Computed example of a mutant assay.
Amino acid sequence: MNSSPNFRLLTAASVAALLLTASCDTTPRERQEAVREEARNIDTLANRAADKLRTVGRRAARFDSVSRQRNRQPLDTAAARTFASQLLGSYGDIEQLTPTTIEPAFVQFMQQVRTNRKQWTQRDWDYATALSRRLNSRFRTIRLDIKGRDELHIRALQTEFTALETSRDVKDLSDAVKDK
């Protein structure tokens, strides 16, 4: 049962209208007016809800448009190298990762993501995502030579990264559609 103030108001008004329309002490004209008044109240609430939905829809579309435009912009190669160096440290040369060094590279990457994610912009997340994709590609290339225990840990770290990234996207979308 919905307990929003508008719903409770609507329910109370509906009950009052029903009581009035079922009452033997009222005239048909009075009952007709009570039904009209209730219909106006419902229309007003529906119009307000539609306005809010329209506003939220426009804000969500604007957020999506900005995100798409940002994603069309290529990442700066120098900035990507700097980001890789910051997030991977000594594991920065992804193509040289071996079955024994890829798991520590993922651990280093996720430690840095956890540490820095709160102050990252969406563009920073774009760089981190590109780096994650490169790590995942290298992982797929050498996966058959990785110990099972390390592979499971890597998969857990990949899942954590996806969850953190998605959480940020949802937060940013939520912020974009909020009433300001």
Rank of each mutant, 00 (worst) to 15 (best):
R58W: 05
M110T: 05
F109K: 08
L131K: 08
N2S: 06
Q86R: 13
S90F: 01
S4C: 00
S4D: 03
A49E: 15
E38K: 10
D51C: 13
Q69T: 08
V107S: 01
L131G: 02
R40K: 14
A79I: 02
K118T: 13
L164H: 07
E37H: 13
I102D: 03
S137E: 05
Q108S: 13
L19A: 10
K180N: 10
V107I: 01
E33V: 04
R149Y: 12
D25H: 15
R59T: 05
T166M: 11
E38N: 05
F63V: 01
K118P: 00
D25M: 10
A130Y: 12
A34K: 05
T121F: 06
A17Q: 11
D64I: 06
T101L: 12
T55M: 11
E103L: 05
D126P: 02
R54K: 04
T98N: 10
E30S: 07
T11Q: 15
P99G: 07
G89T: 02
I154W: 09
T55G: 09
L97W: 07
E151I: 07
I154C: 03
F63E: 07
A105R: 03
R81Y: 07
A78C: 00
L131E: 03
A156W: 10
R54A: 02
D179C: 05
N2V: 02
V15R: 12
N71G: 03
S14N: 11
A80N: 06
A39I: 12
P28N: 13
D172C: 05
